[in-house]
Design a protein around this nucleic acid. Structure first.
Lengths: 122, 122
DNA sequence: TATAGTGTAATAGTAAATTAGTTCACTATA
DNA sequence: TATAGTGAACTAATTTACTATTACACTATA
């Protein structure tokens, strides 16, 4: 996996798992790969995986069954709230940053549209 | 200043100065506050300021005049390129993240518009 | 009941970021 | 020519993230 060396790896893994769940590569109730397997896949130490998962468990996004593995919660309401929270956070971050750059909201929409068009070409 | 504890402070300061320049609170050729003053203002150590500035100097965004201070470059072309680079990076980051969340480009535009409308209400 | 697969916990070592503090070098000016 | 203001460089100490390694506890099943 490609990590950004400006952000703690455990935190990036946490965000990555959010993404896998919200994007439904991991569905409600589904079992995650074993932590030792995740460590190999993500080329990271088991402790680092543990640290990421422990936060997701605290939040109720994941549920552990000792001896069995980690599972995505079946609490769909929680997952819906998670998606909203994560998506909103993206826009909030963008908005605030662009405001400091003195880019107006209508310009933001135009810039996004332009960026999308440009991506389509390539 | 409000720092995100997930990202090195020196790096956040660097981004902050980018913002001040792009948003034209700091104009081409303008003198920056002294590093000791910046350290006080941003409640951070002088060394941390130095580290942020040294990268901006390497990039040519800032120019040092020893004994006088640090100044924004007068190379306007470089500043225009900087703005483009920083703004594009924002959209690129958003786009890639939302794609992993299986949000389509048209949805992105709609979500952004919705977010903006929501901010206006409050 | 042995064994393989799972998560949990703890210790130790390394590297990076940050702070604190000091000293030096250059510039402008009273 | 002192002095105040500026950046530059260096050392030392602390904290956090990460890795490596080991041992333990629970579950399913051959």
């Amino acid at each position: 996996m490609n990590f950004n060396d400006k952000v703690p790896i455990y935190y990036q893994i946490k965000q990555y798992i959010y993404g896998e769940i919200i994007g439904e590569n991991l569905k409600a109730g589904q079992k995650l790969p074993a932590i030792r397997q995740l460590a190999v896949t993500l080329t990271v130490n088991v402790n680092t995986i543990q640290r990421a998962l422990s936060e997701l468990i605290s939040e109720g996004v994941l549920v552990t069954q000792r001896g069995k593995g980690n599972f995505v919660t079946t609490d769909v309401q929680l997952l819906v709230a998670l998606k909203k929270r994560v998506v909103t956070a993206q826009f909030s971050e963008l908005y605030d940053k662009l405001i400091t750059l003195k880019i107006s909201p209508p310009e933001m929409v135009q810039y996004l549209q332009d960026y999308i068009d440009q991506r389509k070409e390539a």
